[in-house]
């Protein structure tokens, strides 16, 4: 390990975080409190450990958007990637932890960056919690014909990502693994229809 920076101060009653640079692998770890990472996180170049407080969602969103931009994802898609992670975190905080704001969430980001200029970059994002476990098959987006508040988050995640897999963690909690290839290489990205306009009704 090359360096470890521990940030002082308090947020939600705890330490702000620890930033570590792993010289051998080039990985950066940003952590809040003390966390151990699962095998699913081992390949991540970037890891973020945070508490389940909504205030932290914005920072994670900006991190994801920034990474996607740097590996060549189209601008609108960077925002949508951030939205998908935002929705996943909202679901953990609201449904998994039922509003408790001091529970652990871990995020791992693995990047495959194509430096040839061909644009074959991809990103894999893992989100782990220690919340109550549910049957992964029960996590599905609702029928969009049924217009009512709520229940859209999972639909958003599945529409934006190429793949989104929920699974139970060994020993408790849930894991969401999301992957996305650079849409500029033909993978789907939910862009508004060209010329669709913003007038209707």
């Amino acid at each position: 390990m090359g360096a470890a920076v521990r940030a002082g101060g308090t947020a939600a009653g705890g330490v702000v975080g620890t930033i570590r640079y792993h010289q051998a692998t080039g990985a950066v770890t940003v952590s809040q409190g003390h966390a151990t990472h699962s095998a699913a996180m081992q390949d991540a170049q970037i890891r973020v450990d945070l508490l389940s407080h909504p205030t932290y969602i914005g920072g994670v969103r900006e991190l994801v958007s920034s990474i996607c931009r740097r590996i060549g994802f189209p601008e609108l898609c960077c925002g949508q990637m951030a939205l998908a992670v935002d929705e996943a975190l909202c679901n953990v905080m609201k449904h998994g932890y039922e509003g408790r704001e001091d529970q652990p969430i871990s995020i791992g980001i693995q990047i495959h960056e194509d430096r040839s200029g061909a644009g074959h970059s991809s990103i894999r994002i893992v989100i782990e919690d220690q919340a109550k476990q549910v049957d992964p098959k029960s996590i599905c987006g609702r029928d969009l014909q049924d217009v009512r508040p709520g229940g859209l988050g999972v639909h958003m995640i599945r529409e934006i990502m190429d793949e989104a897999v929920y699974e139970k963690r060994e020993g408790g909690g849930m894991r969401l693994i999301m992957t996305k290839n650079n849409p500029s290489q033909g993978a789907s990205c939910r862009l508004p229809d060209a010329g669709g306009g913003q007038t209707n009704g």
Binding site: L76, G79, Q80, L83, L144, V147, L152, H155, M156, E159, I160, R190, L191, P192, D193, G196, Q198, T199, N200, G201
Partner: peptide
């Protein structure tokens, strides 16, 4: 209820949720 002035990112959310035809939307 009429929504207006959405930027591209916000409008995209309504499109993904198939709500762009449910709401009245103007520029």
């Amino acid at each position: 209820l009429i929504l207006c002035g959405m930027n591209e990112k916000v409008f995209a959310i309504f499109k993904i949720a198939r709500l762009d035809t449910v709401f009245e939307i103007t520029p």
